[in-house]
Design a binder for these strands. Structure first.
Length: 647
RNA sequence: GCUGGCGUAGCUCAAUCGGUAGAGCAGCGGUUUUGUAAACCGCAGGUCGGAGGUUCAAUUCCUCUCGCCAGCUCCA
């Protein structure tokens, strides 16, 4: 009998008969297959546990704890859900059903949306399929056979998918009981491997993600290897709901969005505005310290400006409708760039002047389709922490490098230290020559590499005028948010005829960098709100200290304490209401005020204050100076000093 | 924009199988003078998202419309 060399993660290599199953091979090498192993990677390729090995193989068992393992587990789970749907509703047609972050979904073509009762029924059936512990087997077809097979089963969407596959390559399908689904695999060996399964919700989705295609019914679910893990996941979803910035924004009275005002337009209430002001002040301070110059620009401008910039051609569907003014048309600004360009153009610039860095907290208005608006995260009017750098080609690399440092230190100050960087390249709809694009992309790539940043490529995701680097941050709940962006632009300098005089006395064209650190103040504020769950650190808290007198006779001393704290620059509120101390504390806790000061006879006598933190911790009695120091120490270094963030 | 769900007091939520609505909290007025997460009593508060229709009668049924939520698509 022919034999092959098989090893387990590179160790215990043994000669085993060719064609042995991965499972049997592991049994030979390891004695037994641990029950939590449900698939393997053979020479880096994921295969079924029961797949046969035909060549020398290095095996790596796959379990739920690896990303690949999770995907297989969830993929099998979605097959179970699909089987349940087919059993409950035989006329539902299968389309696609992948594993996603945190679970899986499956899209069905069905004559009506699934109701909550349907979901219960489907979930019960899925649990039954798991209980039945059906074995899952792989089968390969030729493309033609597969088409015939799925035609005969009344699955036109599957047929359409297969028709798009390359000719001549085998098509695989997986069977569990009476259920057969087109699938690349691998899968769990049997349905019973799924230990905890939950159907989450249903929603509409377009076939192949195109709104011109039929609407399908999408079911979302998740699965885990234990009931505890599933519960932990559900608890996490609850926590995300609790931290929803829309809920916190209302509870903490930070902002509102009202029907009468218009969807996607934010009203900043005093406390929210206070936090925003702190963010903005810090932002301005840092920009001035880092040799940016701050400018202001109007909210509307002649439409012609946007024709020159190319926005009318490339961005029209996201712009508000222009308004007629006298004999010309004006446009609510969707971008700040043209204004900064116009400031640049007011002088003849020398190569010695460059780089020129114009920064602005510029409010822009974009028409977003009604269905996409979402609290502060996606709005129709928002303020970009925008800047445009005009530089010489030889300065490009260094400028991008500096911006990347600025990004990481700025975001770091707000408590975000996990970054993911993405390099986006030329999209289909683009301006400029391929040569310019290559040059700009190379500059970004070099800056990323020189700075030692890990990054991922995002092909075709650049802006129409140039490639970009996007930075995503991770919040306290592990979710990713895009904030910063750095974009190179050769196009606008050309469109607007920007120049500088070089050392050679001749005219040259500067390169522009568009960049934002926080992205949009509204969105960033929403992210911060969810990140901290509303409990802002003291340096950002709208109210840092509540002074709570025990009874009316302590009001005088409380007022004195309040005045002293205010004099020291603290944001302090005095609660003089005729209420018990327990209620005042409860309400200060609910408002997530970092420090509470209780004053009664003892404190007035000693000229001290009793300090309590919002987490319930009692810090005991201290002097006013002590509490002021406590608050100051809580500030990040950069905020304390108001000095350079980098260099 | 599309599919589905939902709009009742400032907030969180009830109720009415068609006969114009109720609670807690918040607010206001009292009483109480309080020691680390809710004192007590009382008062007031609503064109039941908006417009039309059906009906003797609509918050309830129908149509349209606006907004919100989930998802799709898009995105800072």
């Amino acid at each position: 009998m022919e034999s092959i060399q098989v090893s387990l993660q590179g160790k215990n290599s043994q000669a085993l008969p060719k064609g042995i199953s991965a499972k049997a091979a592991i049994e030979q090498l390891n004695g037994a297959v641990p029950p939590e192993v449900f698939a393997v990677k053979a020479n880096g390729v994921e295969i079924d546990l029961l797949a046969s090995l035909e060549t020398d193989s290095t095996l790596q068992p796959l379990m739920f704890d690896s990303p690949e393992g999770k995907e297989i587990y969830r993929h099998s789970s979605t097959h179970i859900m699909a089987q349940a749907v087919k059993e409950c509703f035989p006329t539902a047609q299968l389309t696609i059903g992948p594993a996603i972050e945190g679970g899986f979904f499956y899209d069905f073509a069905f004559e009506r949306p699934f109701t909550p009762e349907d979901l219960e029924k489907i979930e019960a059936r899925a649990l039954d399929i798991i209980k039945r512990n059906l074995s899952v087997s792989r089968r390969e077809f030729s493309k033609e056979e597969a088409i015939e097979f799925f035609k005969s089963r009344g699955e036109p969407y599957k047929v359409e998918l297969i028709q798009g596959f390359p000719d001549g390559e085998p098509v695989s399908a997986y069977t569990q009981g009476d259920f057969v689904d087109l699938c690349r695999g691998p899968h769990l060996p049997a349905t019973g491997y799924v230990k905890a399964f939950k159907l989450l919700n249903s929603a509409g989705a377009y076939w192949r993600g195109d709104e011109r295609n039929p609407m399908l019914q999408r079911l979302y679910g998740t699965s885990f290897p234990s009931a505890e893990a599933l519960q932990a996941h559900l608890d996490n979803l609850e926590e995300i709901k609790r931290r929803d910035h829309r809920k916190l924004g209302k509870d903490l009275d930070l902002f509102s969005i009202q029907d009468e005002t218009g969807p996607g337009l934010i009203l900043w209430h005093p406390k929210g505005a206070q936090i925003r002001l702190l963010i903005e002040n810090f932002w301005r301070e840092q920009h001035l310290a880092n040799q940016y110059e701050l400018v202001y620009s109007p909210h509307v401008a002649r439409l012609d400006l946007w024709k020159t910039s190319g926005h009318v051609d490339f961005y029209k569907e996201n712009m508000f409708t222009p308004m007629p003014v006298e004999s010309s048309e004006y446009q609510l600004k969707p971008m700040n760039c043209p204004f900064h360009i116009m400031v640049y153009k007011t002088h003849l610039r020398s190569y010695r002047d460059l780089p020129i860095r114009y920064g602005e907290l510029g409010t822009v208005y974009r028409y977003e389709r009604s269905g996409v608006l979402h609290g502060l995260m996606r709005v129709r009017g928002f303020t970009q922490d925008d800047a445009h750098l005009f530089c010489r080609p030889d300065q490009l690399g260094e400028e991008v490098q500096k911006v990347l440092k600025f990004i990481t230190s700025m975001l770091g100050t707000f408590g975000f230290t996990e970054f993911k960087m993405f390099l986006s390249t030329r999209p289909e709809k683009a301006v400029g020559t391929i040569d310019q694009w290559d040059q700009a992309t190379l500059a970004l790539e070099t800056a990323l590499k020189d700075g030692g940043y890990a990054y991922q490529e995002d092909p075709g995701e650049g802006v129409f005028y140039g490639p970009k680097i996007d930075v995503k941050i991770q919040d306290a709940l592990g979710r990713s948010w895009q904030c910063s962006t750095v974009q190179i632009d050769f196009n606008n300098p050309e469109r607007f005829g920007l120049t500088y005089v070089g050392e050679d006395g001749k005219t040259h064209q500067p390169i522009m960098i568009h960049r934002a650190l926080l992205g949009s103040i509204e969105r960033f504020f929403g992210i911060l709100l969810e990140h901290f769950g509303g409990a802002f650190p003291a340096w950002l808290a709208p109210v840092q200290v509540m002074v709570l007198p025990i009874s009316e006779k302590h009001q005088g001393y409380a007022q004195e304490v309040e005045k002293n704290l205010r004099r020291e620059g603290c944001r302090v509120v005095l609660d003089l209401r005729n209420e018990k101390i327990g209620l005042k504390i409860r309400e200060a806790e609910k408002a997530k005020v970092p420090f509470m000061i209780v004053v009664g006879d003892r404190e007035a006598e000693a000229q001290m204050v009793a300090v309590r933190q919002r987490n319930g911790k009692n810090l005991g009695t201290m002097s006013i100076i002590d509490i002021v120091t406590l608050i100051r120490e809580d500030m990040p270094e950069a905020v304390k000093k108001g000095s350079l963030l980098f260099e």
